[in-house]
């Protein structure tokens, strides 16, 4: 259950709208079912009262929306940011992607978001979902209520949450948390332990499901190019669908390289993938390597930091050493 209530967020947003600090609010909007929450811009407290939600299905990270939203008006927009969202927020600021002055950021604590796909493995015909402490009560169309452990239904990214601490905000609602010592590299280590053939088979199995909808790229707060190379008819690699499976893998590998050092591990790519491809594992591998080659680095932890691999220092690992390590793994 989320500690902070919807009412608390509503009340504060209403005040800020009322006193003119902001003239619109980026928030989550209620849908048809418990889980189909849509990011939306609210213009008034009344609109919010009607359809604003805050709960276990508010996973969407608003940071990237700020790029477009801040261009629409001279006035400030209110954005609610969960701890992990604040890292994306900072990273975007580092890359000068939006005007900080046009945002009023409220940090809100988060107790993890629920993954509807996990609930679907346990129940079908999901009419609605209520949270009761550490339990989820799923009201189904055919089998009555099904009670599930909330902790088990959390999204993968939330089970290995890296930080309960907000790294950016104008104001904080609720209690501040700490950076967490999470087990987020365990899955990566498992893949590293595979033989090259196993690893190849693993990724081929995963990536072959890709339908190249580009949702992963489009939601990614690190993917903010005005025109992606894969959308540019003049680039020679533009593609709406893969010509073959090799090309498909190239898309993901190129994307992972391009966001290396800038990916904050927010987990949005894996959340939105309709084929449930664990894309975050590719990016986490890069983060893990950067950590071990150059010392620990968290993208977005502060505004203005440079990723180690684009920031020369004398102690940097020799490229030949990196190659050697690669050969040893081959």
């Amino acid at each position: 259950m989320q500690e902070l209530t919807r009412d608390a967020l509503l009340a504060r947003a209403a005040e800020l709208l009322e006193n003119g600090t902001v003239d619109r609010v980026l928030g989550w909007k209620r849908g048809e079912f418990a889980y189909d929450v849509t990011p939306a811009v609210f213009k008034s407290a009344d609109e919010m009262k009607e359809s604003f939600v805050w709960g276990d299905f508010c996973g969407a990270n608003f940071s990237k929306y700020l790029i477009a939203e801040t261009k629409k008006s001279e006035n400030k927009v209110l954005a609610f940011l969960k701890p992990c969202d604040t890292y994306s927020f900072n990273q975007l600021l580092t890359e000068h992607r939006f005007d900080r002055e046009k945002v009023y950021a409220i940090g809100i604590p988060c107790d993890g978001m629920v993954d509807i796909a996990k609930i679907r493995e346990k129940a079908d015909g999901i009419a609605s979902v209520d949270t009761n402490g550490d339990k989820l009560i799923v009201h189904t169309l055919f089998d009555g209520d099904v009670t599930l452990d909330r902790a088990e239904m959390l999204a993968e990214r939330c089970t290995v949450c890296k930080s309960k601490k907000h790294v950016a905000y104008d104001e904080l609602l609720g209690e501040e948390g700490d950076v967490v010592d999470s087990a987020r590299f365990d899955e990566v280590a498992k893949i590293e332990a595979m033989t090259p053939d196993e690893r190849f088979a693993f990724w081929q199995g995963e990536l072959s499901r890709c339908i190249r909808c580009n949702a992963c790229r489009d939601v990614c707060p690190a993917c903010t190019c005005e025109k992606c190379v894969f959308n540019n008819p003049n680039s020679g690699v533009e593609n709406k669908s893969p010509a073959n499976s090799f090309e498909e893998q190239m898309f993901h590998i190129i994307r992972a390289f391009h966001v290396a050092g800038r990916c904050t591990d927010c987990g949005e790519c894996s959340r939105v993938c309709p084929q449930h491809i664990p894309l975050h594992l590719l990016n986490r591998k890069f983060i893990k390597d950067i950590d071990s080659f150059y010392g620990e680095y968290q993208a977005g932890a502060e505004v203005g930091s440079r990723a180690p691999h684009i920031n020369y220092t004398e102690g940097d690992i020799e490229p030949s050493d990196a190659v050697k390590r690669g050969d040893e793994n081959a």
């Binding site: 849509t38 990011p39 939306a40 339908i211 909808c213 949702a215 939601v219 593609n239 709406k240 939105v272």
Partner: peptide, 22 residues
Amino acid sequence: ESCLGCGTCTFVCPTCQCYDIR
């Protein structure tokens, strides 16, 4: 407003029929 333009909806749709020739 918040549509990402990703095209997931068209690719999972059984009736979407648009194609490109390359």
